[in-house]
């Protein structure tokens, strides 16, 4: 049994994954050649190729024909803690461009998503996220005016969405803030495929969330469409402390 649980190639793939995660192989850096790797791990080149294949399939590395294998770009880290977007240490470094801000009245779809009565007053903000000029996400935020109060165009230019959503939230109470998020797979429709510059029906990661204030009132609903391979999501227990 001792050798059967994982094949030699999966074990080597794990070792290489460790090197990538620990940073001894840098993102966009070229991996040692197949020959060098087979010397390092003392296995045949076929086994190395299988290990590299596994990593390519998992999108940790990619191959450039006739050049070699390279470590993929680091994924953008997101946190799923409640209102993580309001915590500077948990914010990502994407460039955001607000393309619209308007006051709307919840239609049936929105009232169903937000669990609020139809025709509730909602501020809708649409933002496009860029990573190095590449569109990687479309974020739609819906703020319930009942809890956030009036938001003006001027507020929009001064505050972030998170700041607007948390107006009136006592910071120290943040551990009691409720949030409910889900991640599903979606496929691009025609307008999103032209926005992202990808073909129609390409998989997208859809991240939806409802966030509440310390009184348990809904403040924010978001519905984000993201390129699936650009992001990673983290969740840590409040009680867990890094050693």
């Amino acid at each position: 049994m001792r050798k059967n649980l994982l094949t030699k190639s999966s074990l080597i793939a794990k070792e290489l994954q460790y090197d990538i995660e620990q940073g001894s192989l840098l993102h966009m850096e070229k991996l040692p050649s197949e020959r060098e790797l087979s010397d390092i791990f003392k296995v045949q080149r076929g086994t190395i190729r299988e290990a590299l294949d596994l990593l390519v399939q998992e999108r940790l590395i990619f191959s450039k024909p006739k050049v070699g294998y390279f470590v993929n770009e680091k994924r953008v880290r997101k946190f799923t803690n409640p209102l993580a977007l309001n915590d500077p240490s948990k914010r990502d470094n994407l460039v955001r461009e607000r393309i619209s801000f308007e006051k709307i009245y919840a239609d049936s779809w929105l009232s169903n998503q937000m669990l609020v009565p139809k025709s509730s007053e909602v501020y809708r903000i649409v933002i496009i996220c860029y990573d190095d000029k590449v569109v990687v996400g479309k974020e739609r935020y819906y703020l319930l005016s009942d809890t956030t109060g009036t938001i003006t165009e001027k507020d929009m230019n001064t505050f972030s969405v998170a700041e607007l959503a948390t107006k009136g939230i006592i910071k120290t109470a943040s551990s009691n803030i409720k949030s409910n998020q889900k991640i599903t797979l979606a496929y691009t429709n025609s307008s999103d495929s032209s926005l992202f510059g990808i073909e129609e029906n390409t998989p997208l990661l859809r991240h939806r969330g409802l966030e509440y204030n310390e009184k348990g009132q809904l403040v924010l609903f978001y519905d984000n469409f993201l390129l699936p391979h650009y992001f990673e999501f983290y969740r840590m227990e409040q009680t867990y402390h890094d050693k």
Partner: peptide
């Protein structure tokens, strides 16, 4: 009792 989770979408290997 306590969990740390990391979630990604990726491609399934064969």
């Amino acid at each position: 009792l306590n969990f740390r989770e990391k979630f990604i979408m990726t491609q399934a290997n064969a």
